[in-house]
Structure formats: C-alpha cells, structure tokens
Design a protein around this nucleic acid. Structure first.
Length: 715
RNA sequence: GCGCUCGUAGCUCAGUGGAUAGAGUACCGGACUUCGAAUCCGUGGGUCGCAGGUUCGAAUCCUGCCGAGCGCGCCA
C-alpha cells in the first residue's frame, strides 16, 4: 500500500472527524471538509500537518487555543494506536501532527524505486484534446512559438500522467491572405537563389518583406484613403452640445456640413477632411446625426491621421495648399520615387496580392502547384522543429480542410435562426450574453478564421468524441474564444461548456517586444544554434566525453533551458527571453535542475568505482537512520509528487511542477554534504542513504519528463 | 467609451483564505586534500499599487480608484 502525504492528511481528517463526533465536542464534520482545512506548519520542526482550530470556535463557543488543548487530550489515544502518526501537539490555536518518518519511508522509497509511485495514474476514461502550436505556413517560426509548444507538449504529458486519454492536436494555418502575400513577393520581387535548408524560414522572410511593402505607413505619414484637404468656410457653435462646432468645409468640388469636436483651427484654414466612405481609426466614416445636427464626413485630428497622440488638435495645413488633395499624397515619405503616386502604388500592390488570393481560391493550376510546394517547405521545417523539441502530435488539422465545412455550418444555423444577417454579413448576436457581435461570414459570402473554428470544434466533438477540449492559444484571442464557445453553445453543442481556452502571454526580448520590422526577433534556427553553442561552451566542450555524448548532452541541456524557462512562469504573464539568464547554472533554471539530477546519478557511480556496492541488493534498509533534517526535508518533498502533478493537470499549470522541482533540487543539494553516502559508517546507513538519493533522483527525472525535458547521466 | 488581464524586495518572479510574506538575481561575507564548489551557508533589503468591505484571520475573496498591457464585425 502506497503512503503519500495525501493519505496522511486523509488519516488525520478521519481521526479528527471521529473525535469531534464524540463528547464533549459532539460536532459533525466530514473528513472531506477537514482535509480542506488542513494546512502545513510554518516550520517543519513544528510538525507535518496542522489543523487551525478557528473553524470550530463558533460552534464550540470557545477560544481556538482552548479547543486545541482539548483536542490534543482527546486525540492522544488514537494517535498512539496509529503507526503512521507519532504525535499531536497544541501550538496556540493550531494542532500540529507529526507523521512517522520511518514508516513513511518504508512505504515511499521502495515504491519510488520500483517505479509505481511516479507512474501514470489509472485511466479516468476521459478523452482530452489539447490543441497547440498552430503555426502558419509561409511565416517564420520564432522564440515566441516555442512557448506555445513547450506549454502544449508539457500539458499533454501531464494530463496523460493523470490518466486522461489525451489527443495532442495541431492546427496549421495553411491558407489565407498571408500566403498570397508571400507568393506575391516571391513571384514579383525575389530574384536570388533558393536556400537548400530552412526553406520555411526563408518563406517567412519573404512574407515579412511583403508585409513591409504593403504597409501604407512606410509610404506616407497619413495612411488613410479618402482623407483630403478642405477649406474651412464657417464655424458656428453647436446649438445643444458644448465644445462642438458646426463647420462648413469645401474640398474644391463641393461643400459639406460637419460637426467637429476638435480645436486649433479657424475660418480660412486648410484642414484634413475624411470623406464619406473613408476609414479612419478603424471606423467607416459616413453621415451622422450629432445631437440633432446632420454631419457629413469628419474633420480629422492629429491623432486620427497618425501625426501625434493628440485627439483634440486639428491638423492645419499651409494656406497655399490646393483643395481636394489626398493627404496620403501630401504627406508622403521619401520611400517612393518622386512622381510616383502613393495611392496608385498601394493599389497596384494590393491588387497584385488580391489577384494571387483569387487565383488560389479559384484553383488556378500554376499558383496552386506553387502554393502546395511552398506549403510543403514550411511543413517540413515544422516537422524538424517538433522532432528537435520532442513535441508530439497525434492528429494534425489544416485550415484548408475546414473552410468549406465552416461556411456550410454557418448557413445551416442561419436558416435555423441561431445566426443573423447584419449589413450583408452573417454572425452571432451575443449581446444578451455580454459579448459583442461575432462575425462568421463576410458580406461577400467568404469565410473567416472564426468560421473555421466552428467547423474545427464540430469535428473535435463528433469525429474524435472528446470529453474536454483545450486550446493553447495566446491571450489576445480570449474574446474570440469566448465568442466561439458561446456560439457553439447556442448551436446546441453540449460539449461547448467543456472547451477551455488556455491563454498565455507573450515572449519579449530584453530589448522589448519582438518585431520582424525592426529586426528584433529570434528565429527558431537562430535560437537553436545560439542555445547549443552557448551550452557547449558553458557545460560540454571541456568534458572528456565521446562526441556523440557531447552532442546529446548539448541538445538535452538546450531543451531543458528553453522549456523550463518557458514553463516556470505563470501562463498569462509575459516572459522576457534572456539567454544569459536562462543558461545561468545557479538559480531557477533548466541547467540547474539538470545538474542536480546528474549529481544524484554520480553517487552510485562513485560507489561502484570504490567497490562499495557489495550487498546493495541484500542489506536490509533501516529507514529510521534517515534522521537528519536535510534527509527529512527531501523525504517530505518527494512524497508530495503525485498531488502536485495532479494539481498541475487539473489547473493546466506546468509551472506548479516547475516550482516543485526547483524546491526539490534546492532541498536535495542541501543534503549532499551532511548525508554523505560513500563515507557512511555502516553498509546499512550507506545503502539507506543511497536509496533516498536515488528515489529523489527518480522523482526529479519523472517530473522533468512531464515538462518534456529528458535528463542525462552526467554533465 | 466598453471588456479582459496584470500590479509583491533595486531587478526577475513564487505564494490565491491560515502562524513571523518567500526564492532567484545583484551587493557584501563565509565554506572545497569535492559521492561534482557547475554547489552550499550567512547579512542587508517589503505602506504586498491605493482606499474601503467580507472574515476569528486577506498579498489571496468583493467594490471603487490609480497605473501598465491586451482586445473590441467583414485580419488571423
């Protein structure tokens, strides 16, 4: 029978429950509720489990310290009869219990050494799909993406350990506008030679260059269409709204009446005027009724045309400026040759991309062939990355396979009245559920990201028969997934309530946010080589090992570095990826944990070398010899392993396991000096200590495996 | 404007209802004829953003405010 600290807590709760039921207490408290109340004493010297008596004060109408005193007396007999517990003491309002360390060790350590203790729990018969990674083809895979992979892969392992039937799924973005952009650049501007490896990363480079060319902001300080120069002809106060003015402007061809809330302009000034139909600040400009006054178009502030952060100040142009000029042209940068129109250039470029997108959608044979070929380059890169990181996928979904299905589902539920039309588009009206309108079909009938998510979810429910669905996706998409899950619920999918968006924060660099435009980005291949190089220099190169072992060790430590760094922090918080700090051999890092594990391995090696292993299989262990504080501390921690992993699985939080393993490593390293194995005075003591070290090592290795980190034997 | 998230030591972070709030890092000091000093030990460092509330008890739960980040129909 395996004994864990959870069992001790249950035992104590059981005793308490029975004692409280009798006189003089006569209180009903279920063992379950008492387990929850149990705490850990502040100082291990005080005991192993604590019961705060405050919770009984009201019902017993007594002061907590008095209750503690009475309970000690009442509990003494049953504690004496119980071999697992040695004592109970009152300490103020607390009741402190001590477990019998030797009897705990007798159960715990052999159970760890035979593998039972850290093994997977019995099946829960629950099928959980964990969807993670979701890279886009034709885009670069960078450090940020490894956070997702580390998280997803670790959750797969942890949930599997907890007994769930886990389906690890990927969902690859292999269609959409980003591919058209990439191919547009490739076909029209690229004239170099194709690289022989990392072609996916190469495509990502083309994509960013395309994005740059398509970025209106690089050509003009005013990246808006339809914002033109106009002359202010008159200004009168708005009849009912203070601070607003009714303004008459003329754009050279016609006059318009517009209500304006800004300041800093006068009659005769030339201002920026957004015409009806233009987009400013993400909103469509049109006709409006401003407190009873008709307003057509809008006069733009400095902020609205990206000149400053001032949303009040109206931009005024030189008096000599012609009327009706596009401000985008007027405020052009020198990125474009003089004489070339900004607007015409932008139109030409975006038309080029649109043409490719259309060709892809209509199945043009030449473009389709190129799409498929380049798609394959990316997929091959991804495979290599996953293989290196040792991330597992049981099923891969592709966006390209759910698009059509998504549209059909949306139309079906539009017919059923679950979805509605709005401005020609189709979506879910979720206002009654506290969420904004959820667009599912464009007014031109084409689908969106959201459309595909509906079809994808349906497949997960129906084809994979899953009980729970976890989406490992960055925190910016929180609202999106709330909308997806709510829409699925309205469509009648019962499993919608078992969908969970596991949101995580960004990966930042010491220099700030990653941006491919400013070059502040670390691509995966760069990450891999700088990591491996640094680790070789810091830990491996100086060793006298075979080349093969050196290479394996460098990779293992590199993976420990990156995965542990990505997992140790709270899911939703941003992480700063700092190579120097993460490879630090001291402190809370992957290499430190790996090192502590290898130290447990070197003990047996040393004994072997000194021929001190005779009788290791036959000498009977005496667990009461593990009496040092440092030994007790390690024993106590390793007993907690199952409950920690269980919690990590329930809460989808690998960081709980990280904190636990760091605590174990720290406690373990304090044990080396005092609990010396090779100098132990008797074989009994030597092998008893050896077992404790090996048990701690086994727990460490098992925990690291659940984080996706494989240990090595020496470093 | 509305919504979500975060705010703990100089810095990076644990701790999410229990006893005197902890690590790492940086600074300073100590411990090696090592089962690996790639380590360990010690000193200093705190209005837990602010203000109320709930509770025997709040860094933790609730409300308001301040600050930062992210998101908010035809992008993914």
């Amino acid at each position: 029978m395996r004994t864990t600290s959870m069992d001790h807590a249950a035992l104590i709760a059981e005793l308490l429950s029975r004692t409280l039921a009798e006189a003089p207490f006569s209180l009903t408290r279920t063992p379950d509720s008492l387990v929850k109340a149990l705490a850990v004493p502040k100082d291990p010297k005080m005991g192993d489990h604590a019961f705060p008596c405050f919770v009984l004060a009201k019902d017993l109408k007594k002061a907590p310290p008095a209750i503690a005193q009475e309970l000690v007396v009442a509990l003494t007999d049953s504690i004496e009869e119980s071999p697992a517990l040695t004592s109970v003491e009152a300490a103020g309002p607390y009741l402190n219990f001590r477990v019998d360390a030797a009897s705990q060790a007798a159960d715990l350590i052999p159970s760890i050494l035979c593998g039972d203790f850290t093994a997977r729990r019995p099946s829960t018969e629950t099928r959980v799909m964990i969807e993670y990674s979701q890279p886009n083809t034709h885009k670069a895979f960078h450090v940020g993406h490894t956070r997702n992979v580390s998280l997803g892969d670790s959750l797969v392992r942890i949930c599997e350990w907890a007994g769930h039937d886990v389906v690890a799924a990927n969902y690859i973005g292999d269609e959409g506008a980003h591919i058209a952009r990439c191919l547009w650049f490739y076909r029209n501007f690229f004239d170099g030679e194709l690289p022989t490896e990392n072609r996916g990363e190469f495509l990502g480079g083309l994509y960013s260059r395309a994005t740059e060319l398509l970025d209106f902001k690089t050509l003009t300080a005013c990246p808006h269409l339809g914002v033109v120069t106009a002359r202010v002809d008159s200004i009168v106060k708005h009849p009912s709204h203070d601070g607003w003015a009714v303004v008459e402007v003329h754009d050279g061809t016609s006059a318009h009446q517009v209500v304006c809330g800004g300041k800093g302009y006068a009659v005769g000034d030339i201002v920026g005027y957004a015409t009806v139909g233009s987009h400013v600040g993400g909103r469509l400009v049109g006709h409006a009724d401003k407190d009873g006054v008709a307003s057509e178009g809008m006069i733009v502030s400095e902020k609205e045309i990206s000149l400053s952060d001032d949303a009040e100040q109206i931009q005024v142009f030189a008096a000599a400026t012609d009327l009706g000029l596009e401000i985008a042209e007027l405020m052009r940068t020198d990125a474009l040759a003089a004489g070339t129109s900004v607007l015409a250039t932008m139109k030409e470029r975006s038309d080029g991309v649109a043409e490719i997108l259309k060709a892809i959608e209509s199945g043009d044979p030449e473009i389709t062939a190129q799409w498929m070929e380049t798609r394959d380059w990316s997929l091959r890169d991804f495979d290599e990355i996953y293989r290196w990181l040792d991330a597992r996928f049981d099923h891969v979904f592709y966006e390209s396979e759910v698009g059509e299905e998504g549209k059909d589902i949306v139309l079906e539920f539009l017919d059923k009245g679950v979805l509605e039309r709005s401005d020609g588009a189709v979506g879910a009206r979720l206002e009654a559920h506290g969420l904004p309108f959820f667009l599912l079909l464009r007014s031109n009938g084409t689908g969106l990201y959201s459309t595909k998510d509906i079809a994808l979810a349906k497949r997960k429910f129906e084809e994979f028969k899953i009980d729970r669905s976890v989406y490992v996706v960055d925190v910016r998409q929180s609202l999106h997934f709330q909308q997806v899950f709510k829409t699925l619920e309205l469509m009648g999918y019962e499993k919608a309530k078992d969908c969970f968006h596991l949101a995580y924060g960004f990966v930042l660099l010491p220099e700030g946010e990653m941006s491919s435009r400013t070059g502040n980005v670390i691509l995966f291949s760069q990450l891999q080589s700088s990591l491996v190089n640094k680790i070789r220099a810091d830990f491996v190169d100086s060793q006298d090992w075979p080349d093969e072992e050196k290479a394996a060790a460098a990779r293992a430590i590199a993976i420990a570095t990156i995965k542990y760094g990505m997992l140790k922090q709270d899911n939703v918080k941003n992480i700063v990826f700092d190579l120097t700090e993460w490879t630090n051999q001291q402190g809370n890092t992957g290499p430190y944990l790996m090192y502590q594990y290898t130290r447990t391995r070197s003990i047996r090696r040393k004994l072997e070398e000194m021929k001190l292993l005779d009788g290791v299989d036959s000498v009977v262990r005496d667990w009461s010899l593990l009496s040092l504080d440092q030994e007790q501390a390690v024993q106590k921690i390793i007993a907690d392993f199952p409950s920690i992993v269980q919690r990590a699985a329930d809460e989808y939080q690998p960081k709980l396991l990280c904190n636990y393993l760091y605590d174990l490593a720290k406690t373990l390293s304090r044990m080396y000096k005092p609990s010396n194995v090779k100098d132990a005075s008797t074989p009994e003591l030597r092998f008893t200590r050896l077992d404790l070290f090996e048990a701690a090592g086994t727990v460490m290795r098992s925990g690291l495996e659940l984080l996706g980190i494989h240990t090595i034997e020496r470093m």
